[in-house]
Design a protein around this nucleic acid. Structure first.
Lengths: 221, 221
DNA sequence: GTCGAGGGTGAGCGAGCGCTTAGCGTGCCC
DNA sequence: GGGCACGCTAAGCGCTCGCTCACCCTCGAC
């Protein structure tokens, strides 16, 4: 949001890829309901009601309630992966790219918290096939973050003992934002993103022995 | 890695405070079912079946299905708070106490993952009264960790810009272990606890300016 | 031996679930 | 202007849910 180079994190108009209009309204209603009450506690009547339609209308656009969850999960994971890929492929030092990846990923989890909650916490309601598809995306998410951290280790910017464990912890920290973030709370998504980027750079030991690699002169802050 | 002084993290025989025996078997069955499928997707028939009893037996020991969740949540939060309090009240530097708190808290979330999942992720299914009671416990959990970090800042051991935000992030990191930890995975609860303690000490900037301080070294004061 | 109390069961209630079906209104093509 | 495809609704099906109720078995007290 601040600099032109930064990855956006929050999208302009979400769900615009879902057509026709009635299908999108149903899907948005489902996101809200799933995030509020959870998949299993949400009824198809509730979803249809939020979208201003009768219960039967849902089945014109979606085969089952689970298909709704699958579509939400798929689109959400695509978006999350896109955010990380954009940050990972920027020019700049590993330190800059990791900070950008974390801050934009966190901004998405905070700013679009309802979507993120469904994406991150309702996976187990998916059937086996959908679950496999989504888990493949999650492995790619993991690989993007691990790639940035490995770059930083290779360049000497980072000091990391357990690459896989640290990657796991970084992602875990970001994902959990969707659990606790409160829109009415004292922090904006941007503030949490900035704080978390700083904490993650500390976790990977960035900016301790600046060996003057790459183009990024100043390590952090 | 594990000194005799360390807080245990995993308990010897859990749920021993629940009597009579049939009530405990039902509660343990409910923990497993809630952790596997979630509260709303779990049926009372499933719980009773796992405990080897008829569906009606559940209502001899518990008024409703929600009372089961409440009891589990209450006991679990008491245990979590107890773990943190024990670590916070040890003798030693803030660095040592924070490392102990994080490693034992994480060991509990990993080693008793089923319980922790229910405790951390099924709160919203509680009614308003039970929710209030549990949230009060959660504020105490937060206060314990914040207290240790504040001690470290005051003593000069830690370098923390945002006390509340950092506390939130530390707890968030620990709690999320219950989401991803896999008993059949490559890491033991002890390994994750040690890794996370190290990462958290980095997050709070421990062991930077006072040389010779930090883990492994002899504590003074 | 009788009896009461308490832990347990089989059967089933009313409600609400996911989902289906028959039919209706509207707009487009000719 | 007739025919029809499409989006949608009202009604409701079959099922399973949380929970209840009438009754039974076991066992210690006397």
């Amino acid at each position: 949001m601040s600099t032109a180079e930064e990855t956006t994190g929050g999208e302009v108009e979400p769900w615009e890829e879902v057509t026709p209009d009635a299908a999108r309204r149903l899907l948005v209603a489902a996101v809200e309901a799933f995030a509020e009450r959870g998949y299993h506690a949400t009824t198809t009547r509730d979803i249809a009601g939020r979208a201003g339609m009768s219960p039967a209308a849902l089945y014109i656009h979606y085969k089952t309630k689970e298909e709704l969850l699958h579509r939400i999960s798929r689109i959400g994971h695509d978006k999350a992966l896109d955010i990380l890929r954009t940050a990972a492929r920027r020019d700049g030092t590993a330190t800059e790219r990791l900070a950008d990846a974390v801050s934009s990923f966190v901004r998405w989890h905070a700013g679009r918290r309802t979507t993120a909650r469904v994406v991150q916490y309702e996976l187990e309601a998916l059937g086996p096939d959908a679950r496999d598809e989504i888990f493949a995306l999650r492995r790619q998410v993991d690989a993007e973050v691990r790639g940035i951290i490995r770059n930083g280790v290779d360049s000497g910017e980072f000091d990391v003992i357990d690459l896989h464990g640290t990657t796991l912890a970084v992602l875990s920290l970001c994902i959990d934002v969707a659990r606790w973030f409160n829109v009415d709370g004292p922090r904006t998504p941007e503030e949490v993103g900035a704080l978390y980027a700083d904490l993650v750079l500390r976790m990977v030991g960035a900016g301790k022995q600046p060996r003057g690699r790459g183009r990024g002169a100043e390590p952090q802050r």
